[in-house]
Simulated scan of single mutants.
Amino acid sequence: MDPIRIAVVGLGKIARDQHLPAIAGNGTFSLAATVSPHDHAIEGVPHLASLDALLAEGPAVDAVALCTPPQVRHDLAVAALKRGVHVFLEKPPGATLSEVAALQVRADRVGASLFAAWHARFAAGVAPARAWLAERRIDRVQVTWREDVRVWHPGQAWIWEPGGLGVFDPGINALSIVTHILPRPIFLKAATLTLPENRAAPIAAELHLLDTADAPITVDFDWRQTGPQLWDIIVETDAGTLRLSQGGAVLALPSGTEHGEDVEYAGLYSRFANLIRGGCSDVDTDPLRIVADAFLCGRRLTTQAFHD
């Protein structure tokens, strides 16, 4: 079977650190081209300044991985889907829920695969955590996602603009795990968003959610963390406490602790290949829906200006 010819659109840090190595390590794909109006090319790989140029001039591609900021991703996905090209959407899958729903309709119409790729769900501890929780009574959940924005997102102005999500850009990784591992649906009850006076997106957020059995879920996102960075999910159950740390890479159960290797993007590309070969899509928007609800009904506080 011929490899799936894929182009990577957007060559920022996530594309270079994660997407390109994952594609190189998966024999189902071949890197056909890269696209960016600003970033330099990869040696030996055709490089174009725009997706329109790639689709018009070649080389031919079967799929694209969209690694751009979310605010421009919809139009790029539309251009690809019009040609019947399969689309991998980095997280979050779009700037709005409605545009992602519209992309799903387009993908279904042309028979292309659309993949909303939540990489944190493929962290080593997530699948066994989901399995362990499946038959447990959930008593309460605490999510703490605190990191230093100057370390992880230096100079990324787009992330502070409408549609860029602010602290929810990393926080949505936690929500993607929680919505995946808990055995019942969850929904937002209240939120507080803290915005710097010179920015359009929050630097911190507190969420209060419930599952459909009324188990409370408390979420603490903050981009002002210095010192140790915290990416923890603690689930108290009738059988003891489960802890996912390091963004889902380490799972601690009452029976012991499991450490896994970084396989997130390898897992994503295996999933994308299976979707394409099977003629299917996977467009789960539950994590983005919770973020949208927080922006819809959350109380807003203003804090001091933030400067990189």
Rank of each mutant, 00 (worst) to 15 (best):
M1L: 13
R5M: 10
V8N: 02
G12E: 11
G25H: 11
N26P: 08
D39E: 15
D39T: 12
H40E: 08
G44W: 02
L51S: 00
L55Q: 01
A56G: 07
V61K: 03
A63M: 10
L66C: 01
R73N: 10
D75A: 15
G84S: 14
G84C: 12
K91P: 09
K91Q: 09
A95W: 00
A101K: 12
R106V: 06
V110G: 09
F115D: 00
V126W: 01
R130L: 03
I138C: 01
V141G: 02
D148E: 09
W158K: 13
G163T: 02
G163V: 02
L165G: 07
L182M: 03
R184F: 08
R184G: 04
F187D: 12
L195K: 14
L195Q: 08
P196G: 11
E197D: 15
A201D: 08
I203L: 14
L207N: 03
I217V: 15
I217A: 12
T226N: 11
P228L: 01
D232F: 03
D238F: 09
L242K: 03
Q246R: 10
A249S: 14
P254K: 04
D262L: 14
V263F: 06
E264P: 05
Y269H: 07
S270A: 11
F272K: 01
D284V: 08
A292F: 02
A292C: 09
A305L: 05
